[in-house]
Amino acid sequence: MNELLEKLSRARGVAGHESEVRAILREELAAHVEELTVDSIGNLIVRKGRSDAAGTQRVMLAAHMDEVGGMVMRTNADGTVKFRSVGGLDPRILPGKRVTIGAQSVPGVIMRAPHAARSGKRVVPISDLLIDTGGAGGIAPGDMITFESEYEEYGRLLKGKSFDDRVGCFILAELMKGDFPCELVGAFTVQEEIGLRGAGVAAYAVEPDVAVALEGTVADDLPKQDDLSPTTELGKGPSISVMDRSAHADRRLVRILTETATAHNIPWQIKQPGVGGTDVGTIHLAREGVPAVAVAVPCRYIHTPAALMDPADVKSAIELMSKALSGPLARPLGPERSEA
């Protein structure tokens, strides 16, 4: 669909190893922003539209650069590699998957004891899985482990690695190329998957008036026996979070986004409350507090080697954010009042 999105999806970077993603974004945005800095934890902060005029609204958009993956614990005498997850991985999807290890990109496959295959009654925990590299050298404890999956089209959808949250990085990068009547700060954050750690630091430094986290989020729109929530659905537009495990969204921002989308005929959906967490969790608690909300592209199978998303939802997310940044999001929020 897009060269930048493809590049971001292919880039490798678990929490603490985001430099490849950061380099892509730096290069992409250097010509489009007024200032570009990297802070002590590794967040890439880009700014534009800074003015001395009093009353200018400072809007922070955040997208995390890190992906879920693993880390090498040690190499066994037989050449196999013990590893642990970095971020939340479902151990059930790991056996048999291709991975790439460390800066030298050593290939490997995840294997599990054959007896575990036979019993099938128990989930084999990550601590009991191994990576087989054929005994390749060049692997050290602490090396990052990433999944291997091509970026490609699947029917009407896009398939690739790390859409959580490279799609957010892509949307943020595209927005930073635009011009909006506010001071716009883009925070490409680190270490979201291990506890929203980069975003809190970024928000403290940026001191925004409002913030929006841009995400790739859970879609659970598989067929089900019972009439249950799909969390989000592909093709129904960007999702807006009201509440998740990390934060309550600012209701004024939710209203701005839903009203903007409706006014411009952009599809939108409310994400199933209570599921997951985003950088908003630490951003909204920075300093004296920051009104914040998360806008996300629904993705099936996040936290696995390959996720699927609808390019139409990506387009709608960019459109929604552009319209909001051109209008109400660029103006100070009014007081929060109870509805009559």
Binding site: A247, H248, H284, L285, A286, R287, E288, G289
Partner: peptide, 13 residues
Amino acid sequence: EVGARGATTAGYG
């Protein structure tokens, strides 16, 4: 009730 979030930012401010 969801983690003393208001007190966190008010205390800072």
